[in-house]
Amino acid sequence: MPTSEEKWTWQCDQKIPNNAVAGRRLLDDVLRRLECLHWNRSDIFGVHLAVDEALVNAIAHGNGSDASKHVQFSCRISPRKIRVEITDEGSGFDPDALPDPTTPDRLECPSGRGVMLMRAFMSRVEFQERGNHVVLEKSRSS
């Protein structure tokens, strides 16, 4: 992972209250920057979907919708990729233990697709520490 070689041209690091409004305000700012940098619509859609799912996971599942908790949100944008890191204060989880939501017996279950979509739309998704810290990276396709 060429972390040190990446030329980040924009970055933000913020500790936000544990609510969706605060998270989406930051995400909207990130998406606007990608638009200004002329990232294509499909890439922006993927970032939007994956980061939104990760924020919901952190706020609702990781922090259990506890208003006293916080979420750490970091974002880096370079000419060729975006990296978002989200950390909650929860006890974490094992992403490998999640059931496959696409099996016939689970297809009609209304939940359980967030992590799968994150992995599908991003170039790299890595859960670190005890599972309460996720790194999402997407390489620009054009």
Binding site: L49, D52, E53, V56, E108, C109, P110, S111, R113, G114, L117
Partner: peptide
């Protein structure tokens, strides 16, 4: 979002 998918499934 995936939460909206959940409503469609229901």
């Amino acid at each position: 979002s995936s939460a909206a998918l959940g409503k469609l499934i229901t």
